[in-house]
Amino acid sequence: MKFKTFAAFVGPSLFLMFLFIAAPLVSVFIGSFQLTQPVLEQVEEETCTPGFVTQTCTTTMVTRPILDEFGEIQTTTEWVGWTNYTRVLDPEATWAAISNWDWNALMQVDFWAALRFTLMFTLVTLPLVIGVGLAIALAVNNAAKSIKGPIIFVSLLPFIITPVIGALSIRWLFIGDGILTSALEAWLDQDIAMFAQAWTIELMMLFYRVWHVAPFAFVIFYAGLQTVNQDTLESAIIDGASRWDRLRFVVVPHLMPLIVFIALIHLMDTYRVFEEIVGFTSQAHVISLQWLTYDFLQPDDAGNRAFGRASASAMLTMVGIVFLLIPLLRRTWRDHHGGSH
């Protein structure tokens, strides 16, 4: 294919990706060093109240934004260096907490609390998703042919459901004296409030995420199981391998590329955990990195959005993704150069 034809085919897609992915990255990078504020002026305001003989007048200094010719608030954009990052990371409080070995104080800084939850969430769900997915795939592979279709149908439901609604549906089972909370209370014989402390909310979030992603892992493993080499399995049996040995030394190595694939996709997706925070309304107890940026972008009571801090926290989130991707990119680089030269 000539370069010109190739460019014509790929052009529109590249243009879109450039305009809406690459360009915003640059603008976020620049924006993270800038601060946009309304231009304020100090005005002397005299307020008088009628009194006996003379009026009592007081003058106060009032700060108010200057309006431009369209009647909108004028803003200035200044280059502020690392200020936005300082405001997000709060190095003083961080340093004080670290030097005192005070974990709770460190968790008072939103960014570190978000980072802790995001990393914990990513690392805990990863093995669970792979394990549960593999278990379902093995069980379905073992089941009678006639029930496979309906089981796949039911299994796909948690996967395609809107994430916010999936999280809500779990939340509604537990909220207040919901049926599962009261079942737990009857079983453990104590009063339980699932939404009163961070760790119970985190448990529900972990459960939700595994419930949501395990079907994806299941479908992929199930497809992989169909191509396991039967001859290898038979020779393993002849060699006296037990069921467990066959799973461990034949099936799992065969599925290894798929396990890596799922782990990769899962790391990318879980690192941007966000919908759980919205669905469980957990921002008072648990927040994630993406939610932090989202929160800065939401207009506050005065209608201002903290673009500068949002950009700074977005850039810090990016740093995490880069760390995540470096091993992958290095491997691809090596494979490509090893393969083509």
Binding site: V10, L14, M17, F20, I21, A23, P24, L25, V26, S27, V28, G31, T36, M268, Y271, R272, F274, L289, Q290, W291, T293, Y294, F296, L297, R305, F307, A310, S311, A314, M315, T317, M318, I321, L324, L325, L328, L329, T332
Partner: peptide, 24 residues
């Protein structure tokens, strides 16, 4: 390389991108 860059783009959290769009 287009495919690899697309893979990197796939990993970006959406909030990072929205932080770029919103002011504009």
């Amino acid at each position: 390389w287009i495919l690899i860059i697309a893979l990197v783009f796939r990993a970006l959290p959406h909030s990072v991108l929205v932080a770029g769009y919103l002011p504009v």
